[in-house]
Design a protein around this nucleic acid. Structure first.
Length: 264
DNA sequence: TGAGTATGTTCAG
DNA sequence: TGAACCTACTCAT
């Protein structure tokens, strides 16, 4: 479930399991055989991430991973499990094994490529050094809609379709107005919520945006077992706050969910 | 069992 | 703007 929160979660998990240890690397699927050979039997010196991009550092050789739509990691105690054929990269040490399958990107970067990738991304709400003013300057000058801008990784890094829908709902903000017409206090509210919600999501890797008071009785009974949203994928259902019908529209090839009353 | 859908990005036209 | 990449899951048949 790769939005920024899950990448941060994965960085934490891999730091815990592999940082400072010598790792064995292989590519059962074969498409990352050269890269795996390059980092095999070397010490993982750092794990970093920004937005939806994850980096495993082996001194000056850096594995850049982007999960895309389908990619995922399976990380477990190392009991000698046989990897599936689809595993692009397996890293392991004596204690843990982690299998990566289906990523959009799994490649070796040098320091220059790493710096360029970081520079291409907007501020990441999960990073302490994030400067929201950079995002505001871009939004404030843009004719693109707020809904499009929130998904643009060069504006804010780490927000995807779920968080876009939920953040705009929480700020009672229409997705359809141009960025340059977005009031500053609305942007501040969006940024505050993105920091708050992404941090909650990063703690256990799940997206949690709905306050307990807005869940139905049935959902409260199941609380913790499922993921809930205010508007994401709730087309045709009543809004949890006002009761109006949640709508869906196509925006830039992605489905946008919104409440026409709360976000007018 | 097969169609449809999906939390993303890049590239060709 | 649409297709391609790549895999898991849900739902209808």
């Amino acid at each position: 479930m790769p939005e920024g929160h899950s990448i941060r979660h994965l960085a934490t998990v891999h730091s815990y399991g592999f940082l400072g240890t010598t790792v064995q690397a292989s590519s059962p699927q074969g498409r990352f055989a050269e890269g795996a050979a390059l980092i095999n039997n070397r010490t993982m010196t750092d794990v970093t991430c920004k937005g939806k991009h994850l980096f495993f550092h082996f001194d000056d050789d850096i594995v850049h991973i982007h999960l895309g739509l389908y990619g995922w990691f399976t990380t477990r105690k190392n009991k000698g499990q046989v990897p599936k054929d689809a595993v692009r990269l397996r890293i392991s040490n004596e204690e843990y094994v982690s299998d990566l399958a289906g990523p959009t990107a799994c490649e070796i970067f040098d320091g220059q490529q790493y710096a360029a990738k970081l520079a291409s991304l907007g501020p990441d709400p999960l990073r302490d050094d994030a400067n929201p003013e950079i995002a505001w300057q871009k939004i404030n000058k843009s004719k693109k809609t707020v809904g499009q801008l929130l998904m643009d990784q060069s504006v804010i890094a780490g927000i995807g379709n779920v968080y876009r829908a939920e953040l705009l709902f929480l700020s009672n903000q229409s997705p359809f107005i141009p960025g340059k017409e977005l009031p500053k206090d609305k942007f501040d509210s969006l940024w505050r919520d993105s920091v708050r919600l992404l941090k909650i999501g990063a703690e256990d890797g799940k997206i949690k945006t709905v306050a307990d008071g807005h869940l139905t009785d049935d959902e409260v009974k199941l609380h913790g077992c499922s993921q809930y949203s205010y508007v994401y994928k709730r087309t045709g259902n009543p809004c949890r706050v006002c009761g109006d019908t949640v709508q869906a529209d196509d925006m830039g090839g992605r489905t946008l969910y919104w409440c026409p009353s709360c976000q007018s």
